[in-house]
Amino acid sequence: MKRMSIMILFLLSLSSFAHCPIDLGKTNLCADITWVDGPYANETSHFQMLFWKRGDAEHRLVSPDYHLDIYSWMIMENGMNHGGPAMNAYEIEEGLFDIQNARFFTHGMNGHWEIRVKLSDDQGEVIVGSQRVPLSSDGNGHGGGHQH
């Protein structure tokens, strides 16, 4: 029984270490996206991006000490990938970025959207992490928040 408890505790701690939806490599940061409104195709969506130190089970937010760029990227089935309409990210609390003008569209394209975060330092080192935008086949999302 004692061994079982120790095993369960160990596995739980492993899972907290493992929870890093967007792994930002050598920056030792993790990020995640929460949808405030959307995601939608062909309408403006609103999401937030949070950052914490990898391994921190409590996910205490930290402000990345890097130049940050958050943008959308479409992975097209024909290989002609491209970016999307520019969006603006504002750090509203330490480690919490708010993006209210995310725009995704599907007109005439087969593929899927990602949100990418690029961290760069003064030495030109660039780390990019990404997460797929959960738009369904009808073009709208399952990210939570109010849906039209």
Binding site: N42, M76, N78, H82, G83, G84, P85, A86, R103, F105, H107, G108, M109
Partner: peptide, 25 residues
Amino acid sequence: GHGSFPIKVTEVGEGIFEAREIFFI
């Protein structure tokens, strides 16, 4: 072979139109 985000068109005066949210991606 693709378009972009839907454009918003508003008639601001007779025969005068404003198109916004035009994104050449």
